[in-house]
Design a protein around this nucleic acid. Structure first.
Lengths: 105, 105
DNA sequence: TTGACATGCAACTATTTAGTTGCCTATTAT
DNA sequence: ATAATAGGCAACTAAATAGTTGCATGTCAA
């Protein structure tokens, strides 16, 4: 779980996920195109994404195809985001109340 | 948005959010209790959480009360998690297909 | 089979981030 | 008043992370 959050904590990696979300199964070379980074930097980002199980890959001949795996993101939603979302309205209400109290200071 | 992801990328900060989720409005001192960190380290984490708008705070006399703000997490869900979740089943299906193909190698 | 292409590996540098220590300020209670 | 409490600020250290360069390996196509 921690690896997933860490992986999502970098804008370049989120960009890579977005690209795979747009079109799944891209090669390393394709994912590099238009980025202000060397291929090796992208390789490292992809390695982290794979370690977090956010991306899986398959070698096809001399190229490596990358696939988005949405499962960990689903788990983050279930185990973490969800529990904050559930009382979202309630917490907003409390915040609102507090802000209103402040204005009485 | 980037600040929110960065803020969530650290386990200690997520712990602080969890604590506030358990009981809102805690002071810095309370949040420090039982953590293997100095007060100043916690202060810095809270500063990042505040910069990401995940936490708001109010000074009450000599103490500072911290409140969870679930809005950014809601936005992450809406703008980012949601779009992966939406085609979760479809993507899982594709992944499954691909894995099955692999086993034919 | 040779050259071009796609990727991998390892060592290194630079930057960012986490955490500490020491001291200062403001507030509360006696 | 003054001592204790709650927190803030700044400089520093240490560690983690991002990114680079150079070279090696495996694969495809002519």
């Amino acid at each position: 779980m921690d690896q997933v959050f860490k992986a999502l904590g970098d804008a370049n990696r989120r960009l890579l996920l977005d690209r795979l979300h747009q079109r799944n199964g891209q090669t390393l070379g394709e994912l590099c195109q238009g980025l202000a980074m060397t291929r090796q930097a992208v390789t490292k980002h992809l390695a982290l994404l794979e370690a977090a199980l956010l991306v899986t890959s398959v070698r096809r001949g001399r190229e490596k195809l990358h696939y988005l795996n949405p499962m960990p993101i689903h788990e983050i939603y279930e185990r973490w985001i969800g529990k904050y979302e559930r009382d979202h309205v309630g917490a907003l209400g409390r915040l609102k109340t507090r802000v209103e109290e402040r204005q009485d200071d």
